[in-house]
Nucleic acid binder design. Structure first.
Length: 645
RNA sequence: GCCGAUGUAGCUCAGUUGGCAGAGCAGCUGAUUUGUAAUCAGCCGGCCGGCGGUUCGAGUCCGUCCAUCGGCUCCA
């Protein structure tokens, strides 16, 4: 007999060799039907794998992340089996579960998988599900594994096997499909009740663009048909929040092929909204001791040779602008930091000057690959809410915390609650990608790690995500479809001060090197507004929205009163418009609702007589009758709730 | 940049086996004077993404380029 300990610390005795599934059966039939895998001593196992010693066990269902992962990973195998049947000779790369569903990378040779094949593969999978193939785990020797995939002619699996230790290799067999796999898997394919293959895409083998591109097939599965339906509805809803769609509808921005790829044109409503964001940050920065600077859009190529940007990006950026002087070259600026370094150097500094905080809404240009451009989130010309803090080494931490306060203030004002704080460090196996000494990197990385810990924020560490001159703390927010975008960033840099030979005189009358903190709380105005649009589905916070209220006269008879209301509201700093069209009130309301104008102010005979307005809130309905003053107080109060504190 | 899909009016979309380019919304004009999510009628609007080819004839078939979308790679 062995002792099994459950998550609630209760214990039970079972025969040696019991499985997670058996344990579930001993508890209830219902649980047994829902168990997808079992966590045994912290490792996720097949629910059918025998447990041979005292263990702590957690039974995993669809409600657990690991349960979903098991379902999706098994679904990837199921799909691979279906592809192998339909495309004999197909070779397989990797097929993991992902955040929402799974994919498998396949090489089907000359007979490429197309969109039309998705439904065929899906139908084959549904057939195979009915057969309830079990997943059988089998430990194999490295030689046996090599032998199997050599015979099969699958060089991708052979490459994966070559990197594994003998004695650590397992195969999973399900129906006719055998795969190299660590597991775990479902007891059998019958658990997969609803299947949808979503898309196909090219994906480089092992993420290396120099290697062959395989066909990646994406899909998702569920234990209930209803959940699949709900998921597809959710996807449709998310598409409606897409900033590219809403940005056009709400007249925030547009693009023109004639102007150029990835070069956004801000429309009046968008420009006003952006200005409001900028004003908010400028005020905050002024209070935090930042000094404004302004620098030009181009810089001599020598500037970027000094900074290191030329060596790193010189050939893949917009190419230099020449002048009538032979050999003289200017680059469109891709970063503001080199310019700010030169401002720092414009006069000698004492330790008493520090920290110096130079801030600029600086527009930069980067030649992003055409396939990477994406609405306002990835563009070739954008404006960073940039600032560079020059400080002494012992000021780094307090300055860093100061910047974090600004980032948090912004996220609060815009109601961003679900952000991810990522500490981006250098890739320890690929140091040649970065400039600077190991010593400087260590200092900078330790500073960020310490700040991350002391701040109490939950952070994830990502190796290889640092900038080429220093580590970063990045604040990421998801878009409507769940894709993560980096917004705010704070970077500690010991390297550029070296390259630009920045100095200050310390209290010891010696020269010292300052530390630079690069920071942009929004990141870029373009990306920030894009994510903001998706986040609020176009219903901007009241303090930001282009039109706060629209006056709807019941008929042309009340136009004069509407004008008077507009005059009074404008005097009270409320952004208002009048809908003077010769339309019925219901129509005007519908249009205002769709334009997501927060307040509709209906004025007719009654209101004119009483000097009032009838207020309707977007998405909510009638709020009743207000005087202009009480409405103004109401709005002011709503705005304070977000932007104060 | 790479793989795949898509491209018809300002927007959303129809358009049969190749045979004169359509609808709704928006816009304009007129009628109506309207009370909390679409009043009615008329009108305007198109190099069917560009170029080349096949054909008596191309929105439709073929080639190529461009752009967009989904991924991959990249992201100072």
């Amino acid at each position: 007999m062995i002792n099994i300990t459950f998550p609630d610390d209760s214990k039970k005795q079972y025969d040696k060799g019991i499985t997670g599934l058996d344990i579930a059966k001993s508890i209830s039939e219902g649980l047994a039907r829902n168990v997808l895998a079992a966590e045994v001593n912290g490792e996720v196992w097949d629910a059918t794998r025998p447990i041979n010693g005292d263990s702590s066990v957690r039974l995993l269902t669809w409600d657990d992340e690991e349960g979903k992962a098991t379902m999706w990973h098994s679904s990837a195998h199921l799909m691979a089996g279906a592809i192998e049947t339909l495309f004999p000779g197909a070779k397989f790369g990797i097929g993991p579960d992902i955040e929402a569903g799974f994919y498998y990378d396949v090489d089907t040779g000359d007979r490429q998988i197309t969109d039309a094949d998705l439904i065929l593969i899906e139908n084959k999978m549904k057939e195979m599900v009915k057969e309830k193939h079990s997943f059988t785990r089998r430990q194999v020797s490295k030689n046996e594994a090599i032998d199997y995939f050599t015979k099969k002619g699958d060089e991708y699996k052979l490459e994966l096997i070559s990197e594994l230790e003998d004695g650590d290799i397992t195969f999973y067999e399900s129906g006719n499909f055998v795969d190299l796999c660590r597991g775990p898997h479902l007891p059998n394919t019958g658990y997969i009740k609803a299947i949808k293959l979503l898309s196909i895409a090219g994906a480089y083998w092992r993420g290396d663009e120099k290697r062959k591109q395989l066909t990646r097939v994406y899909g998702i599965t569920f234990p209930k048909a209803k959940e699949l339906e709900d998921y597809l509805v959710m996807l449709e809803e998310a598409k409606k929040r897409d900033h590219r769609k809403l940005g056009k509808e709400l007249e925030i921005f547009t693009f023109s092929q004639k102007v150029g790829l990835g070069l956004p044109l801000w429309l009046p409503k968008g420009a006003e909204l952006r200005e409001r964001l900028e004003q908010f940050l400028k005020k905050t920065q002024k209070e935090a001791g930042y000094l404004p600077v302004i620098t030009p859009h181009i810089g001599n190529v020598e500037l970027y040779k000094t900074s290191g940007h030329f060596a790193k990006y010189g050939t893949e950026s917009f190419q230099p602008i020449s002048t009538p002087i032979p050999g003289e070259q200017f680059f469109l600026k891709p970063m503001n930091c080199p310019h700010h370094c030169e401002i720092y150097k414009s006069k000698p500094h004492s330790y008493k000057d520090l920290p110096l905080r130079y801030a600029e809404f600086g527009t930069v240009y980067r030649y992003e690959q055409s396939g990477e451009l994406h609405g306002l989130t990835r563009v070739r010309g954008f404006t960073q809410d940039d600032a560079h803090i020059f400080c002494t080494p012992d000021q780094v931490k307090s300055e860093f915390f100061g910047v974090m306060d600004i980032v948090m203030k912004i996220f609060k004002a815009l109601d961003f609650k679900d952000f991810i704080t990522q500490v981006s460090l250098r890739d320890p196996n690929n140091k040649e990608k970065y400039i600077g000494t190991d010593e400087n990197w260590e200092k900078a990385e330790n500073a960020i790690l310490e700040v991350a810990q002391e701040s109490g924020l939950e952070t994830v560490v990502a190796y290889g995500e640092a900038a080429f001159y220093g580590p970063k703390m990045d604040f990421m927010v998801r878009d409507a479809l769940g894709r993560k975008w980096q917004l705010g960033t704070i970077q500690v840099d010991y390297n550029l001060p070296d390259r630009f030979e920045l100095e200050y005189t310390g209290s010891d009358n010696e020269k010292h090197r300052p530390v630079m903190i690069h920071r942009a709380p929004f990141g870029s105005m373009e990306r920030f507004v894009a994510v903001l649009i998706e986040h609020c589905a176009g219903k901007f916070p009241l303090w930001l929205t282009p039109v706060q209220s629209i006056i709807l006269p019941i008929s042309e008879k009340y136009q004069e009163y509407a004008e008077k209301v507009l005059f009074l509201l404008t005097g009270l700093n409320i952004r208002a418009e009048i809908d003077n069209r010769n339309e019925k009130t219901g129509k005007k309301i519908r249009d205002a609702e769709m334009k997501r104008i927060p307040f509709m102010l209906i004025v007719g005979e009654k209101e004119e007589a009483d000097n009032t307005i009838s207020v309707r809130k977007q998405g909510e309905g009638d709020l009743g009758t207000f005087t202009i003053e009480s409405f103004s107080d109401y709005i002011e109060n709503e705005i304070k709730k977000l932007t104060d504190k």
